[in-house]
């Protein structure tokens, strides 16, 4: 019994080989990242901005979509189809659209803070349109039922960061 049957300390199961194929796999993975990035960038459209939603109204009509913009001052609390609703004007890049949001608005919802709304275009005027000072009043409004606040990434002190807020014509 001279041979030692006890397991040896772990050693390479076999000499390193085919480093080339590992390199190829790494290259392919890198290509996958690039490909996903480029194509996803073109193909994904998670939100429309208000101006795009207005521009593509004919294609978007009858479908639900998400739309991002800044609510302008002047919120009208009213009812739509028997449910509590808040009506306001929505803005991005200087383009306005009227919104009737059904259900509770977000806790941090207020004019001048961008929000993302989910809903669809409806022909006609929202209730309480007369109460809006800057209404788009173009015969259409966005009827939405899901609201999230799009928070920005700014944590500076007041003086510097207020200059950066996208006012979108929010002139009070």
């Amino acid at each position: 019994m001279t041979e030692d049957l006890t397991p040896q300390p772990s050693r390479p199961e076999r000499p390193p080989r085919r480093r080339g194929s590992v390199a190829v796999i790494v290259l392919v993975l890198a290509a996958l990242v690039a490909v996903l990035a480029v194509t996803l960038g073109d193909a994904t459209l998670v939100f429309y901005e208000v101006d795009e939603a207005v521009e593509q109204r004919t294609e978007l009509v009858s479908s639900r979509f998400r739309v991002v913009g800044t609510p302008l001052p002047g919120l009208v609390e009213t009812r739509l189809d028997g449910e509590a609703a808040v009506v306001f004007t929505f803005c991005a890049s200087g383009v306005f659209a009227d919104v009737a949001h059904v259900g509770d608005p977000a806790e941090l919802f207020q004019p001048g803070v961008p929000v993302v709304l989910q809903g669809s275009w409806q022909a006609g005027s929202p209730p309480g349109l007369a109460g809006l000072s800057t209404a788009a009043n173009d015969g259409w409004f966005l009827r939405t039922d899901h609201m999230v606040v799009k928070h920005d990434n700014d944590y500076r002190t007041d003086e510097e960061r207020t200059a950066d807020i996208d006012a979108c014509g929010v002139t009070g």
């Binding site: 194509t39 996803l40 193909a43």
Partner: peptide, 26 residues
């Protein structure tokens, strides 16, 4: 729904090419 199906098909094609290559190699 109103989306650009061809853009997504392009993405799928890229995924298919990479998956085939990676699979054949690995």
């Amino acid at each position: 729904a109103a989306v650009d199906g061809w853009a997504w098909t392009g993405l799928l094609a890229m995924f298919a090419v990479v998956a085939s290559t990676l699979g054949a190699l690995a």
